[in-house]
Computed example of a mutant assay.
Amino acid sequence: MNLRGFKNWKLKLRYGRVRTDFHHYTLLADGEVVSPNAEYGTADAGPAFFGMSVWAYNSDQATDMIRTIGQHVGFACTGKIYVYDTEAEEPPGAEPRGYNLKFTRYERD
């Protein structure tokens, strides 16, 4: 199902005119940038938070997704992962997917 071309896709999902097996989550993971990646603004290795929005079947799959995608872009989840049920900014697709990948560096005391 590709809703990107549909106007008012949020309303269609909300009122059941279109159905999806996915749920929308926003995740925040504490960890380390292990391989700098200029495409995502992680020029230096070190501690960071990694945030991402996902369409997934459940929160367990969403958690697996942030770990796997994080590894793919040079991030290791070494701390807690927070999962929030949130309203989507982009429509679901035919497969689980992540979007809005953001990194926020911080300094340890």
Rank of each mutant, 00 (worst) to 15 (best):
M1C: 08
M1Q: 05
N2W: 00
N2S: 02
L3R: 13
R4M: 06
K7F: 15
N8P: 03
W9S: 05
L11V: 13
K12V: 06
L13V: 06
Y15R: 11
Y15Q: 08
R17K: 15
V18G: 00
V18F: 04
R19E: 12
T20M: 04
T20I: 00
D21K: 15
D21L: 12
D21F: 09
F22W: 00
H23Y: 15
H23R: 15
H24Q: 05
T26F: 10
L28S: 10
E32R: 14
S35I: 12
P36M: 03
P36S: 05
N37M: 01
E39G: 08
Y40I: 10
Y40C: 08
Y40D: 05
A43Y: 15
D44E: 14
G46D: 06
F49K: 05
G51N: 03
S53W: 12
S53G: 14
V54W: 04
W55H: 07
A56G: 11
A56I: 04
D60W: 11
D60H: 10
Q61H: 14
Q61E: 14
Q61A: 10
A62D: 00
A62I: 00
T63R: 14
M65N: 01
I66Y: 01
T68W: 13
G70R: 05
Q71D: 09
V73A: 06
G74E: 06
G74Y: 03
F75S: 01
F75E: 04
A76C: 05
C77S: 12
I81K: 02
Y84I: 00
D85R: 14
T86G: 06
E87M: 10
E89S: 14
E90D: 05
P91H: 09
E95V: 07
G98I: 00
Y99N: 04
Y99L: 02
Y99K: 06
N100P: 03
L101W: 11
K102H: 15
F103L: 03
R108A: 04
D109E: 12
D109P: 13
